[in-house]
Simulated scan of single mutants.
Amino acid sequence: MPTMADVARSAGVSVATVSHVLNGTRPVLPRTRQAVLDAIDALGYTPNTLARSLVTSRTRSIGLAVSAISNPYFTEILQGVEAAALEEGYGLLIADPHDDPGHERRVVQLLHERRVDGVIVAPSPRPDDLVGYLARHAVPTVFLDRAVDAPTDPAFRFDQVHAENAAPTARLVTHLAGLGHRRIGLVAGLPGLSTTRERVGGYRQGLAAAALPCDERLVVHGDSEAAGAERATAELLASAAPPTALVSANNAMTIGALRALRARGLTVPGDIALCCFDDFAWADVFSPRLTAIAQPSRELGATAVRVLLERLAEPERPARAVRLPCSFVHRTSCGCPEEPGASTPGG
């Protein structure tokens, strides 16, 4: 079995240089790094990860805790995390917290006990117990997609990576208002999530920008899942003054809203216009094709990995929040004529 010394001889470098390439402990010139990687590949060298972790206290693994992994949005985030981690030589351990605060704390603790170097978490609506655990154990953490309110305490060193939420939602509302709609409903997400709060805020901003009153009866909560959205949309449609246009605040709820519309025999956009937050693979397959806000899901995942690795390299630096822009994808469910390939930045 080839050893690190064999790799060093083959690459024409020192054993220390091979170690730096494998462990990321010191910058190495690109051509030297490539020579080491080529030697590793040619010799079939397999690092002794367990032995190395005992020496360095690092396992080169990352824990990822996101709910609803089956959701296409989180699936794409997972792909971004996995690709970025693999590129940096890190493995990935995955858990589903099910948006339950108690379960969330338990699964993240299990990841921590498996000695991951850090965790990336899409937090639940009430993550206080989780945040307390992470703070007590000084676990390097990036909160992904959903924000956690940061205290003024400078010791709060949890980084955050999210997409813009408010301005893109306002963009959907002003677009519908520009088409003549005056009663625009919102199927909002699970109460307590930062994404829900920010998208509801964006909805109100859009109404204000269009000089439309905000009727709170037009805001219903679909709890970020299809069945909840179907029930909430049905209630909204059964009201005395139903909306003429609807904004759905995530992809799963869009499916539920469409089911509720179909159950009442309503067509989109003939009877009611529809726009949604989250573009997904089927959005341009529906008839009509869905006008949507597209989040940079894979980029969010990859950015979370980069931010976590920067935290591992510099544990004492101040916490930071990274916001990525979304895109407005203009199709036909809003009532506009077909514009093939039309897509402009959101915000």
Rank of each mutant, 00 (worst) to 15 (best):
C276Q: 13
L274Y: 01
G89T: 10
P340A: 11
L258V: 13
L50P: 00
P97T: 03
L261T: 01
E339K: 09
P213T: 09
A210N: 10
N165K: 07
G185A: 11
M253W: 09
Q109W: 00
G201F: 00
V13N: 03
H330G: 09
A342R: 14
E198P: 01
A227N: 09
V285Y: 03
E104T: 04
A51P: 04
E88G: 00
T303H: 01
L29W: 04
D129W: 07
A321M: 07
H175P: 08
P125F: 13
I40K: 01
V131T: 06
R262Y: 04
R259Q: 13
R52W: 04
R264T: 07
C334A: 11
R126F: 12
R331M: 10
Q295I: 03
P125A: 13
V66I: 15
L50Q: 13
R136M: 10
S70H: 13
H221L: 03
V247G: 01
A273I: 12
R58H: 12
I77W: 05
Y45F: 15
L324C: 12
P318C: 05
V131E: 00
G270R: 14
L37A: 07
L130A: 05
P296H: 11
R60C: 08
H112R: 11
G270M: 00
E316W: 02
G301E: 10
P140G: 04
A39K: 02
V219A: 12
V268E: 01
S224K: 00
G132K: 07
G201H: 08
D128T: 13
P97Y: 02
P140H: 03
P2I: 03
H181I: 07
A273R: 01
P213M: 06
E235R: 15
D41M: 04
T195P: 03
A241L: 12
V119M: 11
R259M: 11
A122D: 09
G102K: 10
L324M: 10
T332Y: 08
R136C: 07
V142G: 03
A11S: 06
D145N: 13
L193S: 07
V285P: 00
L172F: 06
E299C: 06
D159Q: 08
R183K: 04
Q109T: 15
L86A: 14
A16S: 14
P296Y: 06
I255Y: 04
L110H: 12
G346T: 14
A238I: 03
L144E: 00
E310A: 15
S53I: 02
L237C: 12
